[in-house]
Simulated scan of single mutants.
Amino acid sequence: MGSVERRERQKAEVRTAILRVARELVVREGFAGLTMRKLAEAIEYSPAAIYLHFKSRDDIARALCLQGFEALLARLEPAAHEPVAARRLRVLAEAYVGFGLEHPETYRLLFMTDPEYTTDIFRSPEDSGGRAFQVLTGLVEALKRQGEVADTVSTVPLAEFLWGALHGLVSLKLTCPIFPTSSVDQLLETLTGLCSQGSAKRTS
């Protein structure tokens, strides 16, 4: 390995280490606990060394959001292989809500901190946000093909409604301990019912 390749590898390793420690700080203390000073102390680098890799705290936050969205996408994509659309809907909903409740600080950073962080991930269909949405639109198309949703229902609005409903459920569970009073399982059962056979029957 040449000197240039070695330097690039070392640079990538330092960047990975910075993000790993930054993620640990966010999980432990929330995004407010992520400061360049704390990060430098935790990783035993000088703040100047961190600035060689990230221009600002916002740059670190954006990188963490990208990693978090990739992790969310990894939870959603297996659902796309479920052949029965109604079952796929339930598996996908459980995966989304499970991710949010198991990784609350990551979820807050993704969707509940700064709109610019999330916007960066939805700028094109190739971004992780766009690919996650394609999982949902693929689900809606499968529901329509299998007669769970009427053909007259538009794919994109229903997929957006589904994402919004799942996000709302996670957000309420993270921010309001006493509401909703129904269990997550009951709420998911209701949601999946609304988005499958009930929709087909009401519009037929």
Rank of each mutant, 00 (worst) to 15 (best):
S182C: 04
Q10L: 13
T16N: 09
D114H: 14
D58K: 10
I121R: 04
F99T: 13
P83Q: 09
A42C: 06
G164H: 01
G147H: 04
S183V: 09
P47S: 09
R123W: 01
F99I: 03
E41W: 00
L172R: 05
L191G: 12
D59V: 10
D58Q: 14
S3A: 12
S182V: 06
G129Q: 11
V135G: 02
F99W: 08
R123D: 05
G33T: 07
T155W: 00
L143R: 01
L110H: 07
L188G: 06
D58N: 12
L110C: 06
M36C: 05
R37C: 01
V84K: 15
P47T: 13
L34T: 04
T137N: 04
M1Q: 08
A159C: 07
S154N: 04
L194H: 07
L39E: 00
C195F: 14
F54G: 04
L34C: 01
V91R: 15
S56N: 11
V135L: 05
A93W: 10
V170F: 07
F111P: 03
E13I: 05
R20P: 01
E8D: 13
H53K: 08
E82S: 00
Y45E: 01
E70L: 13
V26R: 03
F69V: 01
R75I: 05
P177S: 00
K173V: 00
A95T: 00
R123L: 13
V26L: 11
P115T: 10
S171W: 13
Q134P: 04
Y107K: 07
H103I: 02
A48L: 10
A150Q: 02
E94C: 03
L139Y: 08
L101G: 03
G198Q: 14
L66I: 02
A79Q: 03
V170G: 00
R87W: 09
L187E: 01
F179C: 12
A165M: 14
L172N: 10
L187A: 05
L188I: 10
A61N: 09
P115H: 11
H103C: 06
V84G: 08
M36D: 00
V84R: 15
V140N: 09
Q197A: 15
L101W: 05
S182A: 15
A12N: 14
A165L: 10
L73E: 12
Q67R: 14
S3I: 15
L89E: 09
A74S: 14
P125E: 04
V21I: 12
Q146R: 08
T155K: 11
T190P: 02
K55H: 12
S199F: 12
A32S: 11
T119A: 15
L66Y: 06
H103A: 11
L72V: 14
Y51K: 07
T181L: 06
G164E: 10
L139N: 03
L188D: 07
R7Q: 14
T118R: 12
G129E: 00
Y107R: 12
T192Q: 02
T175G: 08
D58Y: 08
E13H: 02
R57H: 09
E160G: 03
F31G: 00
F179T: 15
Y117N: 13
V153C: 06
E5N: 09
